[in-house]
């Protein structure tokens, strides 16, 4: 599994990274846990990798009062172990702890996860439940976009050429949470997964990007029990049938995982 040859540039700092990105011809390398397997399998190609994985100025978790700011190169293991996150955003720390295995969590970053936009990405799922937003920087400016508008489809995002994810912003949410995944084996991406945080419910595996379950959220607001609310988990969706699972099975998983998640956070059965 030897990838096609590519060049390598180590970004000096964020400003240097943005300049090089603006010049084009480079592919950002963060943790490499999605990009390198794809390059090795030759399902992706790169002219030159621009390594930002070591940039400590992008690796931080800061409490800004109304929101927590998480730097793009913050690794999954650091999200999972952060006392600040565990206190103020436990569902995000919990989601990070459930990604792949410790080795992958030691390298993989939140920015890389979002940019890679796998339909089953756990941090996207948790972030959609939390109404997270994404900060995109380019040489000549910065914009902030809701995560819901950032993920456009499987592997597709709103990142424009020359833009880098620098930060993820999430309002604190200390309410009860649950993150449940169904996968076929230990390192498999989830077929269907459900993230619940304070009555907000997001589900992956029903569409190319994780979706909110408005029917479930409304049912919870009017005091429905877990079974009644979870029966609406797949309402209004049109799940795919592929080699992993059929549409009906995905619907079934969504309802079962949602019910279990709701019971876990204390909703009456």
């Amino acid at each position: 599994m030897i990838p096609a040859a590519f060049g390598y540039r180590r970004a000096g700092d964020l400003a240097d990274a943005l300049i090089r990105l603006g010049q084009g011809g480079v592919t950002v390398l963060a943790g490499g846990q999605s990009l390198l397997p794809a390059l090795k399998a030759r399902t992706a190609r790169a002219e030159t990798l621009l390594d930002i994985g070591h940039l400590t100025e992008l690796s931080h978790i800061t409490d800004n009062g109304s929101h927590l700011a998480i730097g793009a190169t913050t690794r999954h293991c650091d999200l999972a172990a952060s006392d600040l996150l565990r206190e103020r955003l436990p569902s995000l720390a919990g989601a990070a702890a459930l990604i792949a295995d410790p080795q992958i969590r030691h390298m993989g970053t939140i920015g890389g996860s979002l940019a890679h936009a796998d339909p089953a990405a756990d941090l996207i799922l948790a972030g959609i439940a939390l109404d997270a937003s994404v900060v995109l920087a380019r040489r000549d400016g910065v914009r902030v976009i809701a995560l819901r508008d950032f993920v456009l489809g499987a592997g597709r995002t709103a990142i424009e050429p020359g833009e880098l994810i620098t930060e993820v912003r999430v309002a604190p949410d200390t309410g009860p949470w649950s993150h449940r995944k169904f996968h076929r084996d230990a390192l498999e991406w989830a077929v269907v997964a459900v993230a619940v945080s304070s009555g907000r419910v997001a589900i992956s595996g029903l569409a190319p990007v994780p979706v909110r379950a408005p029917g479930v959220e409304a049912a919870l607001k009017r005091g429905a029990g877990a079974a009644e609310a979870a029966a609406l988990a797949d309402a209004g969706t049109d799940p795919p049938t592929d080699r992993t699972a059929g549409a009906d099975y995905r619907r079934h998983l969504a309802r079962v995982l949602t019910r279990r998640a709701l019971i876990e956070i204390g909703v009456a059965p």
């Binding site: 490499g32 390198l36 397997p37 090795k40 390594d51 410790p102 030691h106």
Partner: peptide, 30 residues
Amino acid sequence: CDTTSCGACTVLLDGRAVKSCTVVGAQAHG
């Protein structure tokens, strides 16, 4: 496996386990 799955290639990078088949040597600089 050479595909990030089996862990046979695990080494410590700054004390933390990583799969060395899925890290390029250049990332280990410093």
